[in-house]
Simulated scan of single mutants.
Amino acid sequence: MTRRLRVASWNIRKAFGLDWRRDPARVLRVLELVGPDVALLQEADKRLPPRPPALPPAMMRAAGWDWVDADPDTPSIGHHGNAVLMRQGIAAFEVIALDLPGLEPRGAALVRLEGGLVVGALHLGLRRIDRLRQLRRVVGTVRRMGGPVLLGGDLNEWGRLPLPRGWQEVAPGPSFHAQRPTLRLDRFLAGPGVGVSGSGVLARSHALRASDHLPIWVDLEL
Rank of each mutant, 00 (worst) to 15 (best):
P105N: 13
A109Y: 01
L117I: 03
V149L: 05
D73V: 10
V118Y: 01
L100D: 02
G152L: 05
L150H: 01
P148Q: 12
P148C: 04
L135N: 09
M145K: 04
R143T: 15
Q134H: 12
L135S: 06
R131E: 06
L98G: 05
G89C: 07
V149S: 00
V138N: 02
G120I: 02
E104M: 12
G125L: 02
V142Y: 05
P75Y: 09
E104R: 14
N82Q: 13
E94I: 00
N82L: 04
L126D: 11
A108Q: 04
G116R: 10
V84C: 07
D71M: 12
L150F: 04
A91Q: 14
I90D: 11
G146F: 11
G102D: 01
P105D: 14
R144L: 15
E94Y: 10
G89P: 08
R131G: 03
V139T: 14
V118L: 14
A97N: 05
A108I: 05
G89S: 07
H80L: 11
A108H: 03
G102T: 00
N82K: 07
F93E: 15
I129V: 15
R131F: 02
M145H: 00
A108W: 04
L122K: 01
D71E: 15
G152V: 04
P75F: 09
G78M: 10
L135A: 06
V84N: 03
V142E: 03
G89Q: 10
E157L: 12
E157I: 06
G146M: 12
A97F: 08
V119T: 13
L155C: 01
G78S: 07
M86F: 03
N82P: 02
D130N: 03
L135Q: 03
H123P: 03
T141K: 06
G146K: 11
G153T: 08
H79T: 07
G120A: 15
R128W: 02
P72F: 13
I77N: 07
E94G: 07
